[in-house]
C-alpha cells in the first residue's frame, strides 16, 4: 500500500490530528512500510473464515436495569480544562 500526501491528510483529519508539512514525508514512508508489512496476511486463505469479533465467552449477560449514580455532576466537570457551573466550555461553534 502506497500512502500519498492527500491520503495522509484525509486520514489525519478523520483522526482529528494535524501533520506538519516538514514531517509528512517521513510519516508517509513509515506508514507505507508498516501497511506493506501488514499485507503479508494476504498469503493466508481466509475465504471460509468468519471474523473473530468477540474474545469473551459470555453472551448476552443480562441484569435488571437499576438506576444508580456513578459520579456526581460536580465530579463529571472536575477534570474539565474549562467549565462553568453546568457545562463543559468550548470555543463558540455558531456565530
Amino acid at each position: 500500500m502506497n500512502i500519498d500526501r492527500g491520503m495522509l491528510r484525509r486520514v489525519a483529519h478523520l483522526a482529528r490530528l494535524e501533520v506538519k508539512e516538514s514531517e509528512e514525508e517521513a510519516l508517509i514512508a513509515s506508514l507505507t512500510e508498516v501497511l506493506t508489512w501488514m499485507e503479508q496476511l494476504d498469503e493466508i486463505d481466509t475465504s471460509d473464515v468468519e471474523p473473530l469479533t468477540h474474545m469473551g465467552e459470555a453472551v448476552d449477560a443480562l441484569r435488571e436495569d437499576v438506576v444508580r449514580e456513578t459520579i456526581t455532576h460536580e465530579q463529571a466537570l472536575a477534570n474539565a480544562p474549562q467549565h462553568d457551573e453546568n457545562y463543559f466550555r468550548v470555543p463558540k461553534v455558531m456565530e
Binding site: 478523520l14 508498516v34 501497511l35 496476511l41 471474523p51 473473530l52
Partner: peptide, 21 residues
C-alpha cells in the same frame, strides 16, 4: 493514523476484517 486508515471505508475489509479472520 494507522488505525484510522485500516478502519476507513475503502480499506476496512482488506485490513481490519482480514486480521479478524
Amino acid at each position: 493514523l494507522l488505525g484510522t486508515f485500516v478502519l476507513s471505508a475503502s480499506y476496512y475489509d482488506a485490513y481490519y476484517t482480514k486480521a479478524q479472520k
